[in-house]
Amino acid sequence: MTYDWTLWIVFILIGLATTLPRASFIVLGQRATLPEGLQKALRYAPAAALAAIVAPDVVLVGGALEVFNPKLAAAFAAVLATQLSRNPWLPFIVGMGVLWALR
């Protein structure tokens, strides 16, 4: 797959969506505070978003639900490796290994 110049606009927009949250309170300083309820709710954002990206990728094949597929098996293997080992490479080795073996 090749990409045209619009990819750079996407990078800049993602960059803004990254730098603005990071810089927010560091730049604003004491002029602003974050309500405690909102702080609590925001803690769940990364987990919800990560799952919302991962789940469709591993259970859908060509847009249709397919529970027995190599990607889901590879994902399970990666979850197990993450749970059972502290080696940072293992989930990638096991996950990619299962993916390649089942295809």
Binding site: V10, L13, I14, A17, T18, P21, R22, A23, S24, F25, I26, T33, L34, Q39, L42, R43, A45, P46, A48, A49, L50, I53
Partner: peptide
């Protein structure tokens, strides 16, 4: 959608920044 997803993944930084 790509930009909103990036923003949501970065929401934790607002807490860190604060």
């Amino acid at each position: 959608l790509i930009v909103v997803t990036a923003f949501v993944l970065n929401l934790r930084f607002i807490i860190f920044s604060a």
